[in-house]
Simulated assay, not measured.
Amino acid sequence: MGMAATLYASVGHGGASAYLAIMALAGIAPETMRPTALALNLVVSAIAFANYARAGHFDWRLFVTVAIPAIPLAFIGGMAQLPDQLYRPVVGAILLFAAIQFAWKPNRATRQPPRPAILAGSGGALGLLAGLTGTGGGIFLSPLLLSTGWAKPRTTAAVAAAFIFVNSLAGLAGNLSALGELPQGLGWLALAVGAGGLVGSRLGAVVVSRTILMRSLALVLVIAGGKLLLT
């Protein structure tokens, strides 16, 4: 899980989709997987946000506009159980399509974001999807911001990290309201992903080029999309 956290944190993500895939392969019970993934998301996304924000890439206005409507809907989504057959094929295909676009054309022009109402509506929809899927929503927000040109890659990573944190917190709260307690043994997993998050987010925020960052995101989306389609 530490290696997954390194890769995901390099693009401002928490790694929930990878943690879910790893736990599925390990045969962990589904009711344990989602709160575990969300809790680990909190650790990695907080570290990624700190590194990207410290490097000057965070856009508060963009974050607030998408996050405020997302938080309550992520909580609602965390309480609900969406049948796998309704979202896995569609979302997985969308993520794979986005991955191909970012790998093929990593240098994209940016333009002014749309009206706040459009951003807010997008944020609310992504928050609900984040809660339903047990992720922080970054695997959906990053493709949206980058494919539309609404934010630069590193700004996208910074905003996505903060978005993932607040949605993971809301989704976990909603999930715990139904389950009542956190899974056992989170401490060692949190240390592993925290170490990976420190390395990955530092590389993404300061060291790697725009092209490498976009192709790293493409790889993350391939992993996430493949996990949704194959598990």
Rank of each mutant, 00 (worst) to 15 (best):
L186I: 11
A192M: 09
T155E: 11
K152R: 15
G136F: 05
A162Y: 08
S168M: 00
G131E: 05
L169A: 14
T155W: 03
G134C: 00
A158R: 05
G138V: 06
G149S: 09
L132E: 08
T133E: 11
S177V: 12
A178K: 09
W188G: 10
L169H: 00
A162E: 03
T135R: 10
G137M: 09
G136R: 05
P183F: 10
G171R: 08
P183R: 06
P153L: 06
S142I: 13
L132A: 03
S142D: 03
A160E: 15
L132F: 02
A130H: 03
F165A: 14
A192P: 06
S147V: 03
K152S: 14
L189F: 11
W150H: 08
A192G: 08
S168Y: 03
T155M: 06
G174R: 13
A162H: 01
A158K: 03
G131V: 08
V159F: 08
F140M: 15
G185M: 09
L186K: 00
L144C: 00
G174D: 08
V166Y: 08
I164C: 12
Q184K: 12
N167P: 00
S142H: 09
G136C: 09
L182Q: 13
L189G: 15
A195I: 15
T156C: 10
A162V: 04
A160K: 09
A162I: 01
P143G: 03
F163N: 04
P183C: 14
G131C: 05
E181C: 00
V166A: 07
L146Y: 02
P183E: 12
T155P: 06
F140I: 12
G137Y: 13
F140G: 12
G149K: 00
S147A: 13
I164G: 06
V166M: 12
T133Q: 15
G138F: 11
Q184M: 10
L169C: 01
T155Q: 02
L191P: 06
A195K: 00
Q184S: 11
S142T: 15
N175K: 14
L176E: 08
T156V: 11
L172Q: 00
V159E: 13
N175W: 00
G174C: 10
V159S: 13
G185D: 08
N167W: 05
G134E: 04
G134I: 08
T133H: 04
L169I: 04
W188N: 10
I164N: 14
W188F: 09
T133I: 13
L129A: 14
A158L: 02
L129N: 08
L129H: 07
P143C: 01
T155N: 02
L141W: 12
A192D: 03
V159Y: 11
T133A: 15
A162M: 10
S147I: 06
A157G: 11
G196V: 03
A195F: 07
